[in-house]
Simulated scan of single mutants.
Amino acid sequence: MKGWAELVFETPHPREIYHALAPELEDEIHRSRVELVEGPGFVRLKISGEDVVSLRAALNTWIRLVKIAIEMVSL
């Protein structure tokens, strides 16, 4: 079963967060795909997984990465 999730994070620092996370997009993930989009006042994350397990794992990883990036630019 394939699945996807799209999360929008509102932030006053979308460019900084996008650039902090962009290198992670180059990592090869075998069973999931990640798109990251920077917009005015937000960063949108779309994760697709081949199955529920890969989707959950990718969500856990990327939500943690976004949280850390937001915390770092807020210092």
Rank of each mutant, 00 (worst) to 15 (best):
P40M: 01
L75C: 11
S74T: 15
G39M: 04
W62C: 03
I63N: 04
T61W: 02
E71W: 12
A58F: 02
I47F: 10
L55T: 11
V52P: 08
G41E: 07
V66R: 00
P40Q: 08
A69K: 05
V73K: 07
A58K: 01
I68R: 08
I63L: 12
T61F: 10
G39R: 10
L65F: 02
S54A: 15
V52A: 14
E38S: 07
S74M: 13
P40F: 01
S48Y: 14
V37H: 02
L59W: 00
E50V: 13
I70F: 02
V52H: 13
R56L: 12
K67P: 00
I68Q: 03
S74R: 15
V73N: 06
W62H: 02
A58H: 00
S48E: 15
M72N: 13
R44E: 11
V73I: 11
A69H: 06
R44F: 03
V43Y: 06
L75P: 09
E71H: 13
K67G: 15
L65V: 00
W62M: 03
D51R: 05
F42W: 13
L65P: 00
T61Y: 09
G49A: 10
I63K: 12
V43W: 05
T61K: 09
I68S: 09
S54G: 07
V37E: 11
V73R: 05
V73A: 08
V43F: 09
E50N: 08
N60L: 07
E38W: 00
E71L: 14
N60H: 06
L59P: 00
A58S: 13
I70H: 05
V73P: 04
V53A: 15
P40I: 01
A58E: 00
E71N: 14
R56V: 03
G39S: 02
S54I: 03
I70Q: 09
S74N: 15
L59Q: 05
I47C: 05
W62N: 02
S54K: 04
N60G: 12
V43M: 07
V53M: 13
V37R: 11
E38N: 01
N60Q: 05
G39P: 03
S48H: 14
V52N: 11
L45Y: 07
M72F: 12
G41N: 07
A69R: 03
W62Q: 01
L59E: 04
I70M: 12
I63V: 12
E50W: 06
